[in-house]
Design a protein around this nucleic acid. Structure first.
Lengths: 199, 199
DNA sequence: TTTTATTGATTGATCAGTCAATCAATAATA
DNA sequence: TATTATTGATTGACTGATCAATCAATAAAA
């Protein structure tokens, strides 16, 4: 055989390259040639391993999702109270690598793509649900379930919104400011509840 | 066929068609032919009036922006206290036509496009700034300026986030629920302030 | 006649995807 | 050890399709 065992290396290199190209091109309208060139291989090889451009893009979004999930798991492990886990959850979503312009551009591009590709949409729905349910799990110990559901929904929306707004790079908010805005939302929502419960 | 004075009619028909095609295609990767067909004219005519596909797309986003601004002006006129104007502002952003799937898809597509096209980006920045500053103007009478700025930022993000999440059509939130989530955020943020100020 | 509206036909560029052919590492064989 | 068969890795060249953009020609109004 030839240099056996190239496949996993090439796949990784191609996904990385795809992410980079999408990132600084700011769109999924990138060519296989460009991706392949960035990965240092021929366009034909990219097709050999992924079958189609769509498939390579799907793998790329899976990668983004997996990275976020892994970061989340790690962050949650380090926190031990519900409130601390909420903070960890927020922080993860604004972590440096998630906030990198290229990453933001890629997420955005995939959001747009989700309107066309059912498979892409499924992945993003998974992300959206996961964020919401992670928040929910740690809000439930802190307030009634129905309130927890609303706050989880609101916090998830705020996180996504801050993230998207970042993509415009107008009046860019710092990571810390984004985090504290979300923290404040949860704090005051919980405080308003507590006040309402003991009138 | 050629009656004089067709230009404005054709331009409008083409922009409408572009919006529709972008909407149900869920992407800016639409062809001039498709848009022209929807508008009932030849592709060549679309080029005749707009010069290029990019230009037609630019006009399309201007149209979206203008519609939102007009709706905003109308809504603000009908409200007379700062708090009422805040509610009006929120409501406008979740109005039925803004919430239509095709409209959401188009906004999303333009967000992605903004990563590539400086002109598109400028338009979206205008939108983002306008939302923020409208909110700010009516928050200022209700709380200290620095707090108003934070709340405006947070509310704008929540609105955008709810909007984006709607595009995934998973666990779709009703218009009313989206509105009340944003209202609650403002209410509890203001309440937390009031409480903090008179301890 | 001059101007405006409109189109069919065409061009040139871009790409995804295919394919036949080559390269090189290994394992089996002699 | 030397030879050979096998096969994953890799590519250059090509194809077919798609599109934006152009243009020359025509039809109707002014």
């Amino acid at each position: 055989m030839p240099k056996v065992g190239m496949e996993p290396l090439r796949r990784k290199a191609l996904v990385d390259a795809a992410l980079r190209v999408i990132g600084d091109h700011g769109s999924l309208s990138v060519t296989m040639s460009e991706i392949a060139r960035q990965a240092g291989v021929s366009p034909a090889l990219a097709h050999h391993y992924f079958g189609s451009k769509d498939q390579l893009l799907i793998e790329t979004i899976r990668f983004l999702l997996r990275r976020l999930r892994d970061d989340t798991v790690t962050a949650l492990r380090a926190a031990d109270t519900p409130r601390a886990r909420l903070s960890a959850l927020i922080r993860v979503n604004f972590q440096a690598d998630q906030f990198a312009p290229a990453t933001i551009a890629a997420w955005l591009a995939f959001y747009a793509e989700a309107q066309r590709s059912e498979e892409t949409r499924r992945f993003l729905v998974i992300y959206a649900r996961r964020l919401r349910s992670n928040l929910l799990a740690d809000l439930k110990p802190l307030c009634p379930t129905d309130a927890a559901e609303r706050i989880a929904e609101g916090a998830a929306a705020m996180i996504d919104g801050l993230y998207i707004r970042q993509s415009l790079r107008s009046a860019p908010i710092s990571i810390e400011a984004s985090i504290s805005l979300t923290e404040d939302y949860i704090n005051s929502a919980l405080a308003a509840l507590a006040k309402g419960q003991t009138p």
